[in-house]
Design a protein around this nucleic acid. Sequence first.
DNA 1: TGTACATCAGTGAACGCGCGTTCACTGATGTAC
DNA 2: TGTACATCAGTGAACGCGCGTTCACTGATGTAC
Lengths: 203, 203
Amino acid sequence: MPYHHGELRAALLDAAEQLVRERGADGWSLREASTRVGVSPSAAYHHFASRDALVRALSQRVLARLGERASEASGKFDDPRDRVIAIAQDYVRWAIEDPAVSKLAFGAGEPDEPISPHPHDVLAVELARLDLPAADFLVWAAMHGLAMLLADGLMRLDGPAAVDEETERLIAAVLDGLAASPRNPLSTARSAHTDRHQRHDRH
Amino acid sequence: MPYHHGELRAALLDAAEQLVRERGADGWSLREASTRVGVSPSAAYHHFASRDALVRALSQRVLARLGERASEASGKFDDPRDRVIAIAQDYVRWAIEDPAVSKLAFGAGEPDEPISPHPHDVLAVELARLDLPAADFLVWAAMHGLAMLLADGLMRLDGPAAVDEETERLIAAVLDGLAASPRNPLSTARSAHTDRHQRHDRH
DNA sequence: TGTACATCAGTGAACGCGCGTTCACTGATGTAC
DNA sequence: TGTACATCAGTGAACGCGCGTTCACTGATGTAC
């Protein structure tokens, strides 16, 4: 073990992520993550201002990876509708496979810097192609709800096939329903990260 | 302050709920709740086996209250469709008004005993009247997702009117979409509490 | 109505523990000349 | 190519703290007779 680790920041995030996976969002400590990496507890403070900063950084890394997954999932199809459904299926499967990590990702509050690619943005691009303005948050809400109910064990589905099927059924229903009753195209919904971008842009 | 409190169990749950509200789902201790009630920390052990048991009991109490709210909300309308939308609007508003408590309610795992009335059941009754079999979990997922995205600050809406409007838009879309493409009426989704009931019934 | 006594629901001291964070330090690295 | 030195990224001891839980206890309550 070299004196200078070299990748300590990433290694601490890895260890913390694994601990979240094993013990839940709050069942671990900075000291424990340091020990796993093989480093003294104080070493972490050269990379994170506090335990809380580490948690936020982890949340952001996880969300960015989810955004990448969404991009990949949508890339397997051409039709925008199929792409949206593929994103949703991937999102829901991910939440079931990694429930504690996904809960942490969404519960860590405002990010320190914009998340790229943000899952919401990946979805919004596809919905724009479907000519369903102001649908992005509602479609996101639908897939998010299904994902969280399953991740929290409040709802169960037998096997990945059933999960994919129900996800498609829900998202298809939302898309069809929104298409059937279009309304005022001016969205009233906003996201934290979009706000920040806009604020930046205006300066 | 009498030696025998009389309502200590409920008082501890009240204090814990308020602490969750102020500091977040995990930002408080059993000792702190006891102190607030004006009782020694060990007194709690005559009413709860552990801190974890207190958290579970709180989660269950909160869910049951949400079920009651849902019943009340739906009672203001006659048309089942309006009733479903009213339940959803109440659910989403509740999550925005009390985000930390609502997050705790859904994250506390399996209940010790059945929740009555369970919010999902209240919803399912209305959906049965709409002749939309196997729609209950999907409609629940949609409202739940909207609620959680708003509670976690991942999405924002300006004011209660916008919240109600977007909630109605989402739920209406799901109902319309599901009605337009009916499928195999055999639901593959199950809930933890329904499972338990069934297991009981079969004995 | 009075008394003995079991039970219930508190007290308060103590336990061992692991936590986040600070601090003065030191070994390793890389750059200037 | 060699050396001086600043900077970087670790160490390890220590801090004060509040935690959940246990334990022997005691005051209050309610019931039997």
